[in-house]
Amino acid sequence: MRYVKPESFEAAATLLRDEDGTSRILAGGTDVLVQLKAEMVEPDLMVDMKHLPGMRDIAAENGGFRVGAAVSGAEMGEHTALKAMWPGVVEGVELIGSSQVQSRATMAGNLCTGSPAGDSVPAMVTAGAVARVQSPDGVRDVPVIDIPTGPGKNSLAKGEFITSIFLPARPDNASDAYLRFIPRTEMDIAVSSAAVSLELDGNGVVATAHVAVGAVAPTVLLVKDAGDALIGSKLDDAAIASLVSVVEAACNPITDKRGTIEFRTKTAGVLAKRAAHIAYARAGGQA
């Protein structure tokens, strides 16, 4: 295995494109090093870009924030302004692993690893986050929702990687929340999860809403009808009941050692309901 620290993003892209064997990017390493140790993968090339410009920065941009692809969960958790704007995104990132894992794990790594249960992904999706992708031919912006394509897979082409993730400006009277179900209280993988991001009008009525669920399909699902179910409501019982049934209907999970189809579907609905209430309260709404 070769370990390389390239001098520029362009050099990194070329290096990755030209590698004939298996390559991996070393961000926090909390997935990739574990896979190495468990002998699930033996990369021929390991590219480390944590030192490149902007990779470790959280920068204000157009009223939102650009988060470098090597920023750790702990660094996001300590960024007051980011946390105030996108509390659901940050709480998703902060749920990853333990303090030790937090000091390494990144949002970009969580996204690219392609787990349907990745904790930072649903809230990034409901926030409308956009990944900046470097390729050997240049740079392009890709909505986060379009990155994962299935368990362990993503849409990035050979030679492509993420340099940052942009969280857009958030309107007033708006907020978000993320919840996951795990059998323990930490150090676990979501059996199901839900993120809700919503915006209220001046009367506390939901004006826009986005709902995403995790671990209930091969990728995180943005459930448009579920967001629509909340629009025009103050999260009254009927709106919530409709949210829950729409979410349950959207779920397409598997039964495995972590949970049954039935359990994942039911809890996804419950979590969407609970996350909606939290986001609503954070946005200043009163039921």
Binding site: R184, E186, M187, K257, R258
Partner: peptide, 11 residues
């Protein structure tokens, strides 16, 4: 130890 779940301290 991910899927063989012994209690963690916060449990």
């Amino acid at each position: 130890f991910l899927d063989y779940r012994v209690p963690v301290a916060s449990d």
